[in-house]
Amino acid sequence: MRAVTFQGKEKIDVRNMPDPTIQEPTDAIIRVTSTAICGSDLHLYHHGNLVLEDDYIIGHEPMGIVEEVGPGVKNLKVGDRIVVPFNVSCGDCHYCTHDMESMCDHSNKNPETDYGGLFGFGKLNGDYPGGQAEFLRVPYADQNSFKIEDDSIPDEKVLFLSDVLPTAYWSVEHAGVKEGDTVIVLGSGPIGIMAQKFAKLKGAKRVIAVDHVKHRLEHSAKQVGIETFNFDEVDMPSLALKDLTNGGADVVIDCVGMDGKVSKIEKVTNKISAQRGTTRPIEMAGVAVKKFGTIMLTGVYLTPASNFPINNLFSRNITLKMGQCPVPHLMPKLYDMVMKEEIDPTDIITHIMPLEQAATAYDIFDKKSDNSIKIVLKPD
């Protein structure tokens, strides 16, 4: 099969790889019909050598048609159309049965880690090759699938049940956004835009999108209908945000993570410390949030932080929340919201490209060029 593979820093290539096979009775094999590039994939694009070997298949936002099922699969049959969550979870452990599937006890056997498996993130994260490929093995298939019964629904309308929608929704819920709040969302990429939408749905009085990519801020202003803030246009953006919100926001949601804009100092410290990327979003959030406010870290941080502002957060009684969204239990609710047109996930799609053009697609997405926001890849 053809698949998108990691080949070192900022190098990916579509190569011929072995077709996946049934390895466990509870496995299924799907023919991927749509998959997408996520901001988390850019962390691998830049720093994948920390967790990946060359030739590893990446991607964690797939959907497709069931081609084969193992003898232990009870709820799926050949021909079913499913969306696959980015978490890999067993469905039976304490965490899975208490809506904490991202911390599954059984899906990640790596002794160096203590959290659940992830598609496309290498041996450290359970060793599950990713979904940017023609075919995908889905372990614990009954648990890690959401059936789309209506064939008339286009992939693009439900594909983001795999990650974007639940991650954005859970970020807002986990942060405790409530009616009347002022919410700052760092980043107007796919997750950020959806988090902005969900914050509005929760009744936030003000939602402010923060970014420095103009076309993404314009999208937030036009499609979400919120305030925008370009941090490149002011000298001290953190303090400017604090002033703009009259002492700070109730909630700041960081949808950027370690691959935000790296400062000059960090470019030096990254060479002599364990940190990679930046902690500037955390530092900005720590100033822009009000006293007794909440910061939610949604963007991925793969390495230790050299300049984590623990003193500032402690001194101002800030609540800090973070982590990987537990996706499976959220998929039915979000599917209903999409079908009822309470939320539209499709307006973030700017590019639909063949899987074979993945290298070009990654370059576009990484550079935020061609007015890109979200890129969907089609294996066919």
Results as ranks from 00 to 15, higher is better:
Pro111Lys: 01
Gln143Asp: 01
Asp163Val: 04
Pro154Met: 13
Pro139Ala: 09
Thr167Ile: 03
Asp163Ser: 04
Val158Asp: 12
Ser152Glu: 14
Thr113Gln: 15
Ala141Ser: 12
Gly122Gln: 10
Ser152Gln: 11
Pro139Lys: 10
Asp155Ser: 15
Val164His: 00
Val164Trp: 03
Val164Glu: 00
Phe121Pro: 01
Asn144Lys: 09
Lys157His: 03
Gly120Met: 15
Ser152His: 09
Leu165Cys: 04
Pro129Phe: 14
Lys147His: 01
Val138His: 04
Lys157Tyr: 03
Leu136Ile: 09
Val158Tyr: 06
Tyr115Ser: 04
Ser152Cys: 01
Ala141Trp: 06
Tyr128Ala: 01
Lys123Met: 13
Val158Ile: 12
Val164Phe: 05
Asp142Cys: 05
Thr113Ser: 15
Leu161Pro: 11
Asp155Ala: 14
Ser152Arg: 13
Ala133His: 01
Asp150Cys: 09
Leu136Trp: 02
Gly117Arg: 13
Gly130Thr: 03
Glu134Gln: 15
Pro166Ile: 02
Pro139Ser: 10
Pro166Ser: 04
Glu112Met: 08
Tyr140Gly: 04
Leu161Phe: 08
Leu159Asn: 09
Gly122Val: 13
Asp155Lys: 05
Gly120Val: 15
Val138Thr: 06
Pro129Asn: 05
Asp151Gln: 14
Pro129Gly: 05
Asp150Ile: 11
Leu118Trp: 09
Asp127Trp: 12
Asp142Met: 06
Val138Pro: 03
Pro139Tyr: 07
Gly130Pro: 05
Leu124Tyr: 12
Asp127Asn: 15
Leu165Gly: 02
Asp163Leu: 05
Lys157Ile: 02
Gly131Arg: 07
Val164Thr: 10
Lys147Ser: 02
Gly116Pro: 13
Ala133Cys: 01
Gly131Lys: 06
Leu161Thr: 10
Val164Tyr: 03
Leu159Gln: 08
Tyr128Pro: 01
Leu124Phe: 12
Glu112Leu: 11
Asp127Phe: 13
Phe119Arg: 04
Glu134Phe: 12
Leu165Trp: 01
Ile148Pro: 07
Glu156Ile: 00
Gly117Asn: 12
Glu112Ile: 01
Asp127His: 15
Pro111Thr: 05
Asp155Met: 07
Asp142Val: 02
Glu134Arg: 13
Asp114Gly: 09
Leu124Asp: 10
Gly120Trp: 15
Ser145Gln: 09
Leu161Ala: 07
Asp150Gly: 04
Asp114His: 10
Asn144Ile: 09
Asn144Val: 07
Asn144Arg: 08
Asp151Thr: 15
Asp163Arg: 08
Val138Glu: 05
Ser152Ile: 02
